[in-house]
């Protein structure tokens, strides 16, 4: 496996996962906005915050955070490197260079949704059509993932792709939790009006990560903040929980040429997540703790890149 190709496959995994999570976050938020009463409706800025592209957004659209602006920025904007269209374009560009190591259908799905986004443009962003468009993205991402699992050799290249997928998901999950829950855990005075709607907001956090049904089956109780957080951060069986993703990375590394640096970075971050006392963090320090986890994920990425991609 060429180092360059390994790098590409790893990023392919990340881009697909990023596009999917971004699309889902928008779908869920759109639904949440419809469910909340007009006078207390949450704004659209949280979505931009989740993706960590607040500065870029303000430079381009100002501080109004109008729905149309935010959606355009996150779905189509080519100047936003994290937009759905950019992620898919990058994934497609990578596919073009590593096509020979991927099943053929992968290209057809990614290319297809890429063309829909490029050709459909703005008119697909209206509330009524947005859902369909984003559903295309979700389908393509899941199809791609499914095709790779079902028909790509689970060789070293596949393992790199899987590393990227899991690392990106762990990162996305922490981001979504960080931004979504800050106002839920300690409502400010201004958020008081939202209190009666706490339940549906927690549900939307779960939905952003397709976790609602799995959570219900797991907890068999009504949605409670701490339990939701514990589930999304520490559950060992739910594939989008941070712990699960880190464990997957732990299971993948031994299939690659040994890298002490990557193993050490993983052990460290894994321990931070495993050993955390969520109840206490909810009382205070959750935000700082999530920061620590994100930095840990960043270091893990750097260790992987240094070990394998810069040969």
């Amino acid at each position: 496996m060429l180092s360059r190709v390994a790098d590409d496959l790893y990023w392919f995994g990340r881009y697909i996962q990023r596009a999917e999570n971004t699309a889902r976050a928008i779908v869920v938020h759109s639904n949440l906005v419809l469910d909340l009463p007009r006078n207390v409706a949450v704004g659209w800025s949280a979505l931009v915050e989740i993706m960590g592209v607040d500065d870029l957004f303000r430079a381009r659209y100002g501080t109004g955070y109008a729905e149309a602006d935010v959606v355009r920025f996150l779905v189509l904007d080519a100047d936003n490197p994290g937009s759905v269209a950019s992620s898919l374009a990058s994934a497609r560009e990578i596919l073009r260079t590593v096509r020979e190591s991927m099943p053929h259908e992968t290209w057809e799905h990614i290319n297809n949704v890429h063309l829909i986004l490029q050709e459909g443009g703005e008119r697909l962003l209206t509330r009524s059509r947005r859902q369909d468009l984003l559903q295309h993205v979700l389908d393509a991402a899941l199809m791609t993932y499914g095709i790779l699992i079902a028909s790509m050799s689970h060789d070293v290249g596949f393992q790199f792709m899987r590393l990227g997928t899991n690392l990106e998901q762990a990162d996305m999950t922490t981001r979504i939790i960080d931004v979504r829950t800050s106002s839920l855990i300690k409502p400010r005075a201004a958020d008081e009006a939202l209190r009666p709607f706490q339940n549906i907001q927690w549900m939307s956090v779960l939905n952003s990560l397709t976790a609602y049904h799995m959570y219900r089956r797991h907890e068999r109780a009504r949605v409670r903040g701490t339990a939701v957080l514990r589930y999304l951060l520490q559950d060992r069986e739910f594939p989008r929980s941070v712990m699960f993703c880190l464990n997957m990375i732990g299971a993948t590394l031994p299939k690659l040429p040994p890298s002490r640096a990557a193993e050490r970075a993983l052990e460290r971050t894994g321990a931070v997540v495993r050993d955390a006392n969520i109840e206490r963090l909810v009382e205070s320090g959750l935000h700082d703790w999530l920061d620590e986890v994100q930095v840990g994920i960043g270091k893990l990425h750097e260790a992987i890149a240094a070990s394998y991609f810069k040969a």
């Binding site: 060429l2 360059r4 020979e100």
Partner: peptide
Amino acid sequence: LVEGPDLFVGDDDIVYMRTVY
């Protein structure tokens, strides 16, 4: 499928590709 930077020629005049191994 390689690009130029994926390959190098060693002191032994043998061509190598850079791989994860």
